[in-house]
Design a protein around this nucleic acid. Sequence first.
DNA 1: GGAGCACTGTTCATTTTCGAACACTGCGCG
DNA 2: CGCGCAGTGTTCGAAAATGAACAGTGCTCC
Lengths: 181, 181
Amino acid sequence: MKQASAVLVIDDDPDVLLAARLALTGGVERVDTESSVDGLDRRLAAASYEVALVDMNFVAGCRDGQQGLDALGSILQIDPTLSVVLMTAYGGVTLAVEALKRGAADFVLKPWRNDKLVAAVGAAAGLTRGRRNAQPLELDALERQAIERALARHERNITLAAAALGLSRAALYRRMAKHGL
Amino acid sequence: MKQASAVLVIDDDPDVLLAARLALTGGVERVDTESSVDGLDRRLAAASYEVALVDMNFVAGCRDGQQGLDALGSILQIDPTLSVVLMTAYGGVTLAVEALKRGAADFVLKPWRNDKLVAAVGAAAGLTRGRRNAQPLELDALERQAIERALARHERNITLAAAALGLSRAALYRRMAKHGL
DNA sequence: GGAGCACTGTTCATTTTCGAACACTGCGCG
DNA sequence: CGCGCAGTGTTCGAAAATGAACAGTGCTCC
């Protein structure tokens, strides 16, 4: 099924923005561009993006990608469900690893191959959708899961598990029976 | 606080195993080594490791790291709480990104700097401990969280939120009151 | 205007759940 | 052995949660 998706591309180089737009158009519903990381808050609130594609180097002569990592942090703080794909021309393994460890969905090197970029953005959009659709389970199922975990963690010692769950032993018995454990 | 931690190192090169042992001894409680990815199941069940440090290239002439990715998958399937640090001499950004996306805790290049390796393994051990100590919340708190999320997701529409949680509207009102929402 | 609709907030007889108490089973220990 | 301890599984009157029903509020549409 074809999915509508909105992507926000952030880079200080207009050429890159244009190239990204051309590469992504057709693959995604909408491509917005932004040349700075300022005012992200409003930007992200205004339209509900599914992917942010962010450059890591905004300051000339500064190639360590720190701005990108900072932007990543800001974006995830604003919306933890939004997938962030980072891109850089100067990246090494160390930077890529750091980016992923900090929660980036993917990491692409400039210059990119258009099909790879589309694939990365598509996969990231899928991640976002997955996170956003992850509706809280029904309370019943949630309780069942929690009880199972608590029992496992305490090696089926009902007394301890009950205490950990914050209920009386008798109550845990009843709920175990209810859930068929 | 100094933490006891057990590390399992897997590499087909005895020199690498020795180097790893030397680098890690002192930094961690115990270092076990293994020269193959076979029989991981028993190995992991026998001792409770906090980190697995795994080489990505077991087959001569095959440098794409596929074995490492497979091993990563196997290990996480056996014990999802165990942090896996991958290492390779031939890695590029692409491989590193793939490894992290598949759930590796970190990715180090051979030859490593001993202090970096110790730091990576230490951080990974911390991750494992965090995951393992993440005891299921008390049922009450869990319910509160679920209710908050459901309300947020449905823009405070009580009727919809109640349906999503699998309880009646009146019940949701009561629980909201109980939790002070 | 007013009928239809979707949602809110509350009431109350009925049903469920609560936990303290009890009896029982191992198990280590002097 | 006899004692204490830690755990299990069950009982029962008291207390709390349940959901159908109701009245109220704000809309949209004709």
